[in-house]
């Protein structure tokens, strides 16, 4: 039987490092993906994912299973993402990573190894992914986070409300507006303008 996250966290509170390791194994990819989609910087996303887990580890002694562990974890990650986005805005920094997509060469190599796709198709797919990511980056902070949580992390609206610390109706409105904006922006960049868009 699978041990629940809350049980693992209680073990971690008692100093069980293997329980913490198991928790990290469960969520590391999800959290890294979420942060990566929010800030579009792979290396920084890994750093922030590590920081998220370290914060969990540090506050393990004070952990009370009042809310779901998953929501708490996403709350920490979301706060870190917000800080990072605001820091970048304040510094008005254009990172080189923002201009050159992460692991571009590596991912191209990986795609090229896939012989089922033609190089042109691979290139087109990659370009498309870059455009989509840039479109996500253009969304306002809260809309972006809400959309990522619902689309990629498959969180329910009430869970997102807990993570974003707002009401469920506010989440509903945020996601609706995010999708509307996303649709408009995708049309602007030439994706999804017709029903024949590659889906």
């Amino acid at each position: 039987m699978r041990t629940s996250d809350e049980e693992l966290m209680m073990k971690c509170r008692n100093g069980d490092m293997s329980a913490f390791e198991l928790l990290v194994m469960r969520y590391k990819d999800l959290i890294t993906n979420f942060i990566y989609r929010s800030i579009s910087d792979y290396h920084r996303a890994e750093d922030l994912a590590q920081e998220t887990f370290l914060r969990v580890f540090r506050s393990a002694a004070r952990y009370e299973p009042k809310c779901r562990f998953k929501n708490w974890l996403y709350l920490i990650a979301t706060n870190l993402c917000r800080n990072e986005i605001r820091d970048r805005k304040r510094r008005n920094t254009a990172y080189l990573d923002d201009l050159i997509p992460e692991n571009e060469d590596a991912s191209y190599l990986e795609l090229m190894q896939d012989v089922s796709q033609l190089p042109d198709e691979v290139y087109e797919k990659k370009e498309r992914q870059i455009i989509i990511q840039q479109t996500i980056d253009r969304l306002p902070e809260n809309q972006r986070l809400a959309l990522l949580l619902v689309s990629y992390q498959n969180l329910r609206y009430d869970e997102i409300a807990e993570v974003l610390e707002c009401s469920v109706s506010a989440v509903k409105s945020l996601i609706h507006r995010a999708r509307q904006n996303m649709k408009t922006l995708l049309i602007e960049v030439g994706i999804g303008e017709s029903s024949h868009a590659k889906v």
Binding site: K28, D29, N33, E46, Q50, I132, Y152, K183, G192, A197
Partner: peptide, 18 residues
């Protein structure tokens, strides 16, 4: 359709030394 487009993004994996 917008949701499907969003799902075209590949998910990233953490590095081995994470």
């Amino acid at each position: 359709q917008t949701d499907k487009i969003l799902h075209q993004l590949d998910s990233v994996k953490t590095s081995d030394n994470f």
